[in-house]
Structures are given as structure tokens and as C-alpha cells.
Amino acid sequence: MSSSTAGKRLLKEYKALSSDPPEGILAGPCDEDNLFVWEALIEGPKGTPFENGVFPAELRFPKDYPLAPPKMKFTVDMWHPNVYSDGTVCISILHAPGDDPMQYEKASERWSPIQSVEKILISVMSMLAEPNDESPANVDAARQWREDRKGYEKRVRDMVRKSLGL
């Protein structure tokens, strides 16, 4: 019952994202037979070292979506303070209001059923442009971002080129 609610909601979001996609964002189920696993592509924001990059990620939705948020994991190499080395994205919108591992997030920033896949992806896009230094998921990337910004930007640009086979 709840899983069919989730399915309906996901299909609705898929439809909205396909008919009117936000700039630089693409998302949909990998296979419509299973609406709970999506692939999303995010373009690197302009004016950042991620510019010109395309970053695919996998979204895994829980059966009680939209009560609980999905999990998001980049499936390309990523070098960012808020992305774990295995690609898992760590931002407040992906955290349920109940669990706040870092004890700093405002309730309004966290997941709630009025959020959506589109809002997640837009948040992640702006996260690429502006890392949140308060909760580093990748400590090494966070340190480089803080202490050696040039080195960080170069590393990201090299990563973008490599990901596009250049």
C-alpha cells in the first residue's frame, strides 16, 4: 500500500522532471519496472571548477518515500568536501528530520515530504558550487578546499576532463 503510494509519487515526479526539466538536470528511473532506483545527471555549475562536467548519480528511494528521503551516490569519481569517497552525498536535504548526525542542521533544510527529487538535485548542484565546510564527508577534500583552493580546483578540473574521456 505504502509502496504503491511511493510509486505513484515517483512516477509523478518523473513526469514533471521529463516535461519541464530544470537547467542542467536530468533524472529518471533506470528501469521503469523498478521506480525506486533512479539515475540522475547533474551538470557542473558554471563559474566553478565543476563547469562542463556531467556527474551521474544513483538515487535509491525507500519504500516509504516521500516520508523518508532517498540516498544519493555519485557513480563517477568525485572530489568534494561533502561527498564521501564512495560517492555518497551528504547534505541536509537528504537527512530525515529525526536523524541529524551532525546536530547542526535546521529542520527547514532537512528532508520532508514537501521536498522532491528536483529540489534535491538543485541542492546538490549548488552544493557543488559552494561546499559546506561544517560537515566534511571527505576530510581530505575539505582540507584541500580550505587550505589549497588552487590545488582543489585543478584536481576537480582534471577529474572533469578525465570523466569525459579527455
Partner: peptide, 16 residues
């Protein structure tokens, strides 16, 4: 969806 995905990647590569 697959078509748009290809398009996005190829366009990014062209820009680069």
C-alpha cells in the same frame, strides 16, 4: 531519457 542523457554528456564534452 537515454537520448537526453547522451546529449547532455556529448554537449559537455563538446564545450570542453
Amino acid at each position: 531519457l537515454a537520448k537526453r542523457r547522451e546529449e547532455m554528456i556529448l554537449a559537455a564534452r563538446r564545450r570542453l
